[in-house]
Design a protein around this nucleic acid. Sequence first.
DNA 1: TTTT
DNA 2: TTTT
Lengths: 151, 151, 151, 151
Amino acid sequence: MAGVNKVILVGNLGADPEVKYLEGDNVVANLSLATTEAYKDRSGNRVEQTEWHDLELWGQQAKIAEQYLKKGSQIYVEGKIKSDKWTDEQGQNRKKVRIRVLSFTMLGGKPEGMGPSSPQNSSPQSKPATAAAPSGSDKMVMDDADDDLPF
Amino acid sequence: MAGVNKVILVGNLGADPEVKYLEGDNVVANLSLATTEAYKDRSGNRVEQTEWHDLELWGQQAKIAEQYLKKGSQIYVEGKIKSDKWTDEQGQNRKKVRIRVLSFTMLGGKPEGMGPSSPQNSSPQSKPATAAAPSGSDKMVMDDADDDLPF
Amino acid sequence: MAGVNKVILVGNLGADPEVKYLEGDNVVANLSLATTEAYKDRSGNRVEQTEWHDLELWGQQAKIAEQYLKKGSQIYVEGKIKSDKWTDEQGQNRKKVRIRVLSFTMLGGKPEGMGPSSPQNSSPQSKPATAAAPSGSDKMVMDDADDDLPF
Amino acid sequence: MAGVNKVILVGNLGADPEVKYLEGDNVVANLSLATTEAYKDRSGNRVEQTEWHDLELWGQQAKIAEQYLKKGSQIYVEGKIKSDKWTDEQGQNRKKVRIRVLSFTMLGGKPEGMGPSSPQNSSPQSKPATAAAPSGSDKMVMDDADDDLPF
DNA sequence: TTTT
DNA sequence: TTTT
């Protein structure tokens, strides 16, 4: 029977996106996202707990991440948990958990270099200012409906 | 700044809960949950992809899981991603990701042996039928608001 | 700036789906879904609170709902809040809130009359048993990616 | 059987919070939150669709909203759908849907007047700077675990 | 390892 | 490694 595997995160990037252009016109971006939680311990002291998440974005989303996200960016992420399993050199079973991002939204207002007043022309994916201006903000939510990676 | 770290799963248990009673009146249950996704590959064949999640429940929740859940049970889970990090014997940095369950709900109707007509007396945590009867179903959603584990 | 508008429900249908076939090959299904919450009041008595949700499904999803869902069915629903506004006969501003369903999953195991061993031939949308058998279950999660209704 | 009724929103406030202090030391805040979605219509034109949500916060949360939120604030909200039903003067059945907020987080960085360097002393709920400083930011995520409103 |  |  069909299941549900859904992850929702709001946090900040610990580093700029790492983007790789693969053969066959595929692109993947890896992001490291921190979600921080604050609570009081038994002594009443404030404690911060940070969890680091490995995010993986594909296709058009990866390109948008490359273009608009950077170290420190705050984003809303929706995705699913996806793990890779292998056997390491010691013959041990290993498992790496990642978040496969299905959509994300930039938070906290327009990033620098975006929008009509300051088009971002230096990026590899840059577009004419006139294109970036009217259509810029709706790119901030990206579904990967159009990429070809069902898993 | 505060973040969001939320996981929502619907799936089936691959095995009975593993429950450990710790010192200090603490209880932890570990569950293995499968979420299955079906899609068509490029050839149009139906493919199933199953992801296995390691769930961790504490306190009263762990006891309810022990009492009512078993291999094959279908549940809705809400929780957060939480990882443990350590250095293994080879000096490698290791990380294990778990889902810390904050609440869960049994799906698919009352389990066997639950409810007024058939109290579950054989379980280690069994209660008098009169206790199980009126309060049985509202135990099916458990928040861990009352346990003492903020992280 | 792009926003997020997401609803997640698990509940039971209060009635069979109401399905309308519209011109232009469009189909809409309306469902009434109950989500029940139990809590203890100040006196320690168990109280149940039921919220009824008006769900709206379009296209292929509506057809699947018509075929497989009925009064009492338990489903997982993901969607968004969508309201209609109008002025009534008294000149009052009125607003009706619905949940536009983006995907749903049947819970609690195979419905009657589904699957290879007992194909569902009496339904108005019945298919040959051979078609229902292999492809039945992966239809239980439906995204409306392919319908033409962005709002 | 227990259900799930969950709403997740990211959007901006259309107005300052409306806060009412009730008898019995209770406080309620009402917020109007816009979630905006952008898509291309069939002609390829960019269309924006805004949904307005009526949010209701109680207790300590309402006070935090009053203190830190204002028109334009971007927030992440988690809550549930809750409707009130009544009969109007024409004898018609009426229903109003609200989002009962269970937790929220401010997005987009520190608001003005918050934090050690610029304590907010003009607010009705203002606190000494020394109190606001160390405890300010962890108030940005509020669960209503401690208020007395289960429904 | 579940479920279909 | 982020953010506050």
